[in-house]
């Protein structure tokens, strides 16, 4: 009897260690990556690097056009994809009746989330660049990126709405609120932390994407910042890719410095997601 107990406790301990090992492995890879990028790049990371356009001389080169390209691309992508995605999620979760059709639609949205990003690039090239004649511009890029992350936004928003207990809705109806009032004053505010987190994580995926943008023709050498949605542009991952593919070593250091900047962008967005979630969750008492 006693032997059986120690045996079971031992099993539990082994499982805990395996889990700890998995976490350490993931963490170690990330640390090595960050360390490697930082040692290569930090010497090149200065104000001049942030405030210069690309150049054929590594010491003069910078990522100004890429930073602004990424910034505007993200803003425009958010403006397009967030209202569409959250709207679709609200409809699917709150209004649509659960029929075979809605189930087919929901399954397909999940499938779309797994489609390789290059496929969205080809679609964007044919639809936005050529058919709609938007050319190789910021707006084409933002529309393509929106298509890419819409499924993720819809799914995560749906999850967040689903997590709101139905007792809240019922209580709202019970005191005579309409469906719109229930959604406006109860479901959406309660689901907001989850929706925001999902949206920001979806946007952080978009920030690192290169393939679809190369496909729609974001360019290699751009020495100006975009001033309208119809302007050509470049983004951080493309500039990094361009530098890393050059044989001269100095450009590889520049690429590392560019990666540090991209990581700062990403971590800021993820931190914003966490902060927003914590802030709103405090008000929730179910």
């Amino acid at each position: 009897m006693k032997k059986g107990l120690t045996n079971r406790q031992l099993k539990g301990r082994v499982f805990e260690l395996v889990c700890l090992g998995s976490m350490m492995a993931a963490l170690a890879v990330l640390t090595v990556l960050l360390w490697d990028v930082w040692t290569d790049g930090h010497a090149w990371l200065d104000l001049q690097f942030l405030d210069s356009f690309p150049s054929r001389f590594p010491e003069k080169a910078g990522i100004k056009s890429a930073i602004w390209g990424t910034f505007w691309l993200m803003i425009m992508t958010a403006l397009i994809s967030v209202p569409l995605g959250v709207g679709a999620a609200i409809y699917l979760q709150e209004y649509a009746r659960k029929t075979t059709l809605t189930r087919i639609i929901e399954t397909n949205i999940s499938n779309l989330a797994g489609v390789p990003s290059i496929v969205y690039g080809i679609l964007g090239l044919a639809l936005f660049v050529r058919a709609m004649d938007l050319e190789r511009s910021l707006i084409s890029g933002a529309l393509t990126m929106s298509l890419l992350i819409l499924p993720i936004i819809i799914i995560s928003s749906q999850e967040a709405i689903l997590a709101v207990p139905s007792s809240i809705r019922e209580a709202s109806y019970a005191i005579g609120a309409t469906k719109w009032q229930t959604i406006r004053y109860h479901v959406l505010p309660d689901a907001l932390p989850g929706i925001l987190t999902g949206n920001i994580l979806a946007l952080s995926r978009a920030i690192g994407e290169t393939a679809p943008l190369i496909m729609i023709g974001a360019l290699t050498f751009i020495a100006f910042t975009p001033s309208s949605p119809r302007d050509p542009f470049t983004v951080l991952p493309i500039q990094i890719f361009n530098w890393i593919s050059r044989p001269q070593e100095e450009f590889h250091f520049l690429a590392a410095a560019g990666i540090v900047v991209l990581l700062v962008f990403l971590l800021t967005m993820n931190a914003a997601a966490i902060l927003l979630r914590n802030r709103y969750q405090k008000n929730l008492k179910w």
Binding site: L219, T220, F221, I222, A223, D231, P232
Partner: peptide
């Protein structure tokens, strides 16, 4: 020389 002309070069 011409800061307001925007030249883009792709490969």
């Amino acid at each position: 020389l011409y800061p307001r002309v925007r030249v883009t070069v792709g490969i």
